[in-house]
Design a binder for these strands. Structure first.
Lengths: 185, 185
DNA sequence: CCTCAGGGAGAACGATCGGTCTTTCTGTCT
DNA sequence: AGACAGAAAGACCGATCGTTCTCCCTGAGG
C-alpha cells in the first residue's frame, strides 16, 4: 500500500460527501459513487456493508470537521467572543460557494425513522452543538443558559436553511445581529 | 360524475401529501402512490404529467392550507397579537402527532436545483410568510421591520426543524419566549 | 341512442436501484 | 519464496424506478 496515494476508502468518502450534499442522498446511486470515485463496487462493499453505512460515515466525518472548526474558533477566547465565534462559523458556512443547507437537516429530511443509524449521528451532532452553546452561555453568566442555548440553536438551524433559500449574506448579517441582541455587550 | 364521492385526483393528492411528508419524496414511488390511493397508473398520469407535478401540487396545497390557518389566526387582531398568533400557528404545528418538520424545507433538501418547479413553489411560500411578518412588524412600529421579519423567519425555520429533532414542547415554548424577547409588550 | 371522456386493470418499457459474485492482478508482509 | 490482503474489472441478481401502453367498462351529455 503506497501510503503517498489516497486510499480508495478515502476517495469514496470524499466523493460521497460531495455528491450527497450537492444532490441529496437518495438521488445519488451506488453506480454514480463508484464511477466518480474511480472505485469498483467490490471495493465499496468491502469498506461499507451498506450504502447507509457510507451515509453515516459521511455525516460523522462532516461532524468531525465542524467540531474542529468550531473548537479552533473558540480556542482561548473569553465566553462572549467564543460564543459569537462559534456562530460565526455557521454564518460563514452559509456564504460558501456551494452551500446547500445543513448536511444534518437535509439528511434528516430523507431519513424519517428516528431510530436509524443516520439519525443517531445527527442527534449526536446536535447535542454536541447545544452543549457548546449552553456552556458558553453559562460561562457568560446568562441567567438561563438552557433557554439561551435553545434560542441560539433555533437561529442556527434557521440560518442554515435561510442561507440556501434566501440571500446568504443577508442571513449571515441577520444571524450576527440577532446574537448581539440576545447577548448585549 | 357523482359529486358526492371523492374524485380520484383528490384521493391521489391526499395520499401523496401524507406519504411524501411522512417518508420523504424520493422514498415514495409511483407504485406506492397508486396502490394506497386506489387509483391506476393511467389515472395518475392523466392528471399529473409527471411525478414532479404531483410534488408541486402537494406543496401548493400545503401552502394554501397554511395561508388559510395563518390568515384566520391573524384576522381582526392588532399587530402585536397578530404577529404572535402567526408564529403560534408554527409552534402548534411542531407539536402535532405526526410532525416531521417543515414540508418546504424537507422538499428543498431533495430538490437541489433552484430553478425547478418544486423550488418555485417553496420560494413563493417563503416570500409570502416573510411579507406577513414584515407587514406586522411595520404596523407594530418596529424601527427595522425587514430585520425583524428576517429574525422571525430564522426562528420559524429553526423551530420547524428543532420540533422534529428535539423536544417539540420545549421548542414551542422557546419560540414563544424568543418572540416576546424581540417584541416586548 | 350514440358518443365520448374518465376511470379501472394490468402488461410492458428501458433504466436504475442496492447488493453479490467471480476472476485477475499487484503490492506487502513473513 | 510463498502467502495473503486489497483493489480493479465487470457480469449478474431481483426489485423498483418513472413512464407509456392497450383494452374494457361505466356514466353523463347530446
Amino acid at each position: 500500500m503506497t501510503s503517498a496515494e489516497v486510499h480508495p476508502k478515502d476517495r469514496l468518502l470524499a466523493t460521497a460527501s460531495r455528491l450527497f450534499y450537492a444532490e441529496g442522498i437518495h438521488a445519488v446511486g451506488v453506480e454514480r459513487l463508484v464511477t466518480e470515485a474511480a472505485v469498483t463496487r467490490a471495493t465499496f462493499y468491502r469498506h461499507y456493508p451498506t450504502k447507509d453505512d457510507l451515509v453515516a460515515a459521511y455525516l460523522a466525518e462532516t461532524s468531525r470537521q465542524i467540531r474542529e472548526a468550531v473548537d479552533a474558533a473558540r480556542a482561548g477566547k473569553p465566553p462572549r467572543e467564543a460564543l459569537a465565534a462559534a456562530l460565526a462559523v455557521v454564518g460563514d458556512a452559509t456564504c460558501g460557494d456551494d452551500f446547500r443547507g445543513c448536511q444534518f437537516l437535509n439528511a434528516a429530511a430523507e431519513y424519517p425513522d428516528p431510530g436509524s443509524q443516520v439519525r443517531q449521528v445527527i442527534d449526536d451532532h446536535r447535542k454536541w452543538f447545544f452543549e457548546i452553546l449552553r456552556t458558553e452561555a453559562a460561562a457568560l453568566g446568562h441567567p438561563e443558559p438552557n433557554h439561551a442555548a435553545r434560542v441560539l440553536v433555533l437561529l442556527r438551524d434557521g440560518a442554515l436553511h435561510g442561507g440556501e433559500l434566501d440571500d446568504a449574506e443577508t442571513v449571515r448579517a441577520t444571524l450576527r445581529r440577532a446574537v448581539e441582541d440576545f447577548f448585549p455587550a
